[in-house]
Amino acid sequence: MPHPDQPFTNEEEEEDLLDEEGENLLDWATTTVVYAVGYIRILADAIESGDADLQVDPVAWENTLNAVEGVMADQLRGHLHGPTPITVEDVERVQRLRSLGSAALSGGERSSEFCPLAIRCMESMFGQDWKHAAREAASCARALNQEFHPRSGT
């Protein structure tokens, strides 16, 4: 390592940049999973209780669930490591959940398959501590949803 007053060589700069890129990817992936679990929890609770307002913006749902599918695919390829091992079946479940959630959010069917599938998806992302993680994530997702997709009159 050079003296602190000496400039980095190109190789050292590249190593620092790769480390920073890796950290940024990990931060993004973690945030993505947190918001995905939050939206899943919010939507599952609303569907289960029969609420007319499903409390999740459809665009936020699509974007977040698409992103989490990418994070899970990166875990499958070994580019990322999460709190639980991810399988192809886990990714397929999230894809199915995204589809069911999108249908419900567009005014279509609220499938009875959604809530049990939501639980399986949250378990695959957080393991046994999914209930605690989902509560915390739902709070974050509600705040984000309100900031970017405010409801009139609320």
Rank of each mutant, 00 (worst) to 15 (best):
142 R>D: 03
51 D>F: 04
3 H>K: 12
5 D>I: 13
56 V>H: 01
34 V>E: 15
59 V>C: 00
13 E>G: 08
148 F>M: 12
121 C>L: 08
126 F>G: 03
91 V>R: 05
40 I>V: 15
34 V>T: 15
38 G>Y: 06
143 A>E: 11
51 D>Q: 12
77 R>N: 12
33 V>P: 07
91 V>K: 05
123 E>G: 03
121 C>Y: 01
29 A>I: 04
126 F>A: 14
57 D>S: 11
111 S>T: 04
76 L>Q: 06
29 A>F: 02
23 E>D: 14
114 F>I: 05
82 G>F: 08
20 E>T: 12
91 V>P: 02
74 D>V: 01
128 Q>R: 14
14 E>W: 11
106 S>W: 04
144 L>F: 09
51 D>S: 11
24 N>R: 15
82 G>T: 09
9 T>V: 04
19 D>Q: 14
73 A>M: 11
135 R>K: 12
70 G>C: 04
147 E>T: 12
135 R>A: 07
43 L>P: 06
148 F>E: 11
59 V>H: 12
4 P>C: 04
149 H>V: 00
85 P>T: 12
135 R>T: 08
95 Q>M: 10
149 H>K: 06
47 I>M: 07
72 M>T: 08
145 N>Q: 11
35 Y>G: 02
3 H>W: 11
117 L>Q: 08
29 A>C: 04
10 N>I: 10
143 A>Y: 04
45 D>I: 06
3 H>S: 13
4 P>N: 05
102 S>P: 01
14 E>L: 15
97 L>E: 03
70 G>S: 06
28 W>A: 15
136 E>G: 01
46 A>H: 01
12 E>P: 07
96 R>I: 03
91 V>D: 02
152 S>H: 10
75 Q>G: 03
8 F>S: 12
10 N>D: 14
136 E>R: 11
125 M>T: 07
126 F>W: 15
115 C>G: 00
127 G>Y: 08
107 G>D: 05
122 M>R: 14
70 G>I: 03
8 F>A: 11
113 E>G: 03
52 A>I: 10
55 Q>Y: 06
25 L>E: 11
139 S>G: 04
45 D>Q: 11
6 Q>S: 13
18 L>G: 00
21 E>L: 15
102 S>T: 13
37 V>K: 05
52 A>K: 13
34 V>W: 08
27 D>C: 02
139 S>A: 13
31 T>C: 05
37 V>S: 12
139 S>D: 10
56 V>E: 02
147 E>L: 13
7 P>G: 03
129 D>Q: 13
86 I>V: 14
106 S>I: 00
105 L>N: 04
54 L>N: 03
87 T>Y: 06
52 A>H: 09
59 V>I: 14
38 G>P: 09
99 S>N: 09
100 L>V: 01
148 F>I: 00
70 G>Y: 04
154 T>I: 06
153 G>V: 09
7 P>H: 03
24 N>C: 07
2 P>V: 05
149 H>F: 15
89 E>P: 01
67 A>Y: 01
63 N>P: 00
86 I>C: 06
32 T>W: 02
60 A>T: 02
40 I>A: 07
74 D>G: 07
103 A>W: 00
29 A>W: 03
16 D>W: 11
138 A>C: 05
56 V>M: 02
129 D>T: 09
68 V>N: 10
106 S>P: 01
73 A>N: 09
